[in-house]
Nucleic acid binder design. Structure first.
Length: 616
DNA sequence: TACCGACAGTGGGGTCGCAAT
DNA sequence: ATTGCGACCC
DNA sequence: CACTATCGGTA
């Protein structure tokens, strides 16, 4: 006998499985010796059947037998009294012939919704995958059509009628959910499991145990694949537009890919996403997980770092400074100006193709900058002059300057660096040079002083346009540091950077320290805002204070950083304990927008004075 | 045991691109 | 031309 | 950017 390979018999339209025409055609085309089983063979089911049908003498009715071997296998197992029905004449004829050596078996052409048997004439009725075929309605198994309900009810009613009192209906279903629902279901369950455990090791173990979810997890946590639309936007859109539950997507990942690649934007994105939601998210569980996936926020205490350990993916990490630390002067330290610009990592690859070098600029988080053509041209020129062989990375800050060229203008830099057009007058202030392989590894072997020498030799003695080396001062005494601090304030610098003379490390480290002057001031809390936050200990969401609103020189400023979780909870429950009360806010400086509006840069709460007592 | 680095998750001001209005 | 949102700089 | 809180390994 030949087992049919499903490929050549799978219909283009899956709803065909419920039609008589499809099966008749299929059985006609196939060799009469072909067998086909949707799922599970007799060997799988034997223990179950033996338990459910203890008597070999039982009178058995097989609904929609098709060319399955189930009937024959049962016969060979001792169940002789089997009546097989199917609504395809072809298959019944074929089967009669095939089982000519099994005289006790009956083969009848019949519709399962209209049985021609007397009431109470069978001990056992078996349906294996037949109702599944009946239910092959495209899309929505949770909102079936009238017709489907009628068909299913027809079968069940008939079974009930022909079964003896106390008889058995054995119903085998593949229970297959639409693929997208199964995807959501898997992730949702994994998510609740992972959220429940606190230990990061246990979280990792659980994630490792669900390989089915890995492809989706990988794309959700990939920081370079953004969805460009949020749950909030879709929900809002659905309130003002009618969306039908007939999604053309059957794979969650495909929808997300189309959102990421901007194949879907604007209303089309809302339409497709909303439709997917209505089609597949029928339970609260599935709805929740869908929004979380869309927002790339699974809320289970796992983020990119943990996912990367399990499912390695390309990510860039750079050296970052700690905000303050005690440092031992016996170690060699270098001091330099802290520049108020935008971090820029330049990757320089010496391509084999003669004259051209590959030069790419990246932000601190690995997004590439396209606006630094002027810097690129000058690096290119320098590379020509030197004919350097190895690949390396320049690390520095892209700055824009005020008209007098005395101060960095951060907002001006922001307005130009991340655009597609060329930046007018970028000044790339370089403070480090790392060999590419070491940068990629996030760990090097050259000391900072050695890297500085290489940087100097690359940049040369005469100054290049648009590129400068940041001046480093070797620190010899604490008095010198105080002097430098004073100098920094006089010059109006953002602050100072302290560097230990150590090997490169692509992470936040205390070998690199930033020193800034902060301003403390008191304000009256005008109002508060509340929202949901995930409690780090339990993983539950609670209503808490998210931020307070104050007024600085008549302009509104929000402050949200600095509160402990407990005080957030307390103030959300008792707003009167903070509204109208004075608070201490620490900030870096005032900020001025083009329209003259004033605000505060990096504001944080330091103290709350509720009726004389201080608390945060 | 007490400390500390790595992670996750929360908040601020401000700018751009993009699509809708 | 303006508005609102998402993403991403600090 | 600043900040809080937790886990898990190390001093």
């Amino acid at each position: 006998m030949v087992a049919s390979t499903s490929l050549n018999v799978v219909p283009e339209d899956p709803t065909a499985y419920k039609t008589q025409e499809y099966w008749e055609e299929r059985y006609k085309k196939e060799d009469s010796n072909t067998t086909f089983d949707w799922f599970k063979t007799y060997a799988d089911l034997k223990p179950l059947l033996n338990e459910a049908i203890p008597s070999k003498e039982a009178k058995i009715l097989m609904l929609g037998c098709g060319n399955s071997t189930l009937g024959e296998d049962m016969y060979n197992d001792g169940y002789k009294n089997i009546t097989n029905i199917d609504y395809s004449k072809t298959v019944i004829d074929n089967m009669k012939e095939r089982c000519a050596d099994k005289p006790e078996m009956n083969w009848l052409e019949m519709d399962i919704r209209d049985l021609k048997f007397a009431n109470e004439s069978f001990d056992v009725v078996i349906d294996k995958g037949t109702m599944d075929a009946l239910m092959c309605d495209r899309g929505d198994v949770w909102d079936p059509s009238e017709e489907l309900i009628k068909d299913v009810k027809g079968e069940v009613d008939e079974v009930e009628r022909v079964l003896k009192v106390g008889g058995t209906f054995l119903f085998f279903s593949s229970g297959k959910l639409p693929y997208a629902v199964a995807q959501l279901d898997r992730i949702s369950k994994l998510c609740t499991d992972v959220n429940r455990v606190q230990s990061t090791l246990k979280k990792q173990a659980l994630l490792a145990q669900s390989p089915d979810c890995h492809s989706t997890l990988k794309r959700i946590y990939n920081p370079h694949l953004r969805h460009h639309v949020s749950a909030k936007t879709i929900l809002k859109y659905m309130q003002t537009h009618t969306i039908t539950a007939n999604s053309s997507y059957d794979d969650l990942n495909k929808l997300l890919d189309d959102l990421s690649s901007r194949s879907l934007t604007g209303h089309a994105a809302c339409e497709a996403t909303g439709s997917f939601y209505l089609t597949y998210c029928k339970t609260e569980e599935h709805q929740n997980i869908f929004w979380r996936i869309l927002d790339k926020n699974l809320k289970m205490g796992v983020s990119i770092k943990t996912i990367c350990r399990l499912l390695p993916m390309e990510s860039m990490s750079v050296a970052l400074a700690a905000s303050s630390a005690s440092f031992n002067l016996s170690d060699p330290w270098y001091v330099s100006q802290k520049l108020d610009g935008i971090r820029c990592i330049t990757v320089i690859r010496q391509s084999n193709a003669k004259e051209q070098h590959d030069i790419q600029f990246y932000s601190r988080t690995g997004r590439s900058f396209q606006s630094l053509q002027k810097v690129k041209t000058n690096i290119q020129k320098r590379l020509h002059e030197l004919s350097i062989k190895d690949d390396f990375v320049l690390d520095g800050e892209v700055c824009a300057y005020s008209s007098d060229m005395k101060h960095e203008d951060f907002l001006k830099a922001m307005g130009q660096v991340r655009r597609y057009e060329e930046m007018e007058n970028p000044i790339y202030q370089v403070f480090d040079r790392i060999r590419l392989d070491q940068f990629m590894q996030g760990k090097g072997d050259q000391l900072f002083s050695q890297r500085q020498k290489e940087l100097e030799s690359f940049l040369g003695t005469e100054s290049l346009p648009h590129i400068k080396k940041v001046a480093q001062t070797r620190l010899t005494s604490l008095e010198q540091l105080d002097q430098l601090k004073k100098h920094s304030i006089e010059k109006g610098w953002e602050g100072l950077m302290l560097r230990k003379d150590v090997a490169y490390e692509g992470k936040r480290t205390r070998d690199l320290i930033k020193l800034k002057e902060w301003v403390d001031a008191e304000y009256i809390v005008k109002s508060i805002e509340t929202g949901l936050m995930r409690m780090p200990d339990t993983g539950e969401n609670k209503l808490v204070l998210t931020n307070v609103n104050i007024e600085h020189k008549g302009y509104p400023v929000g402050v949200g950083s600095g509160f402990s979780m407990q005080s957030r909870i307390d103030y959300a429950q008792n707003p009167e304990r903070i509204i109208g009360k004075p608070i201490t806010v620490r900030y870096f400086s005032e900020s001025k927008k083009e329209n003259g509006a004033i605000s505060l840069r990096f504001p944080t709460v330091k103290a709350v004075f509720e009726d004389g007592e201080r608390d945060v």
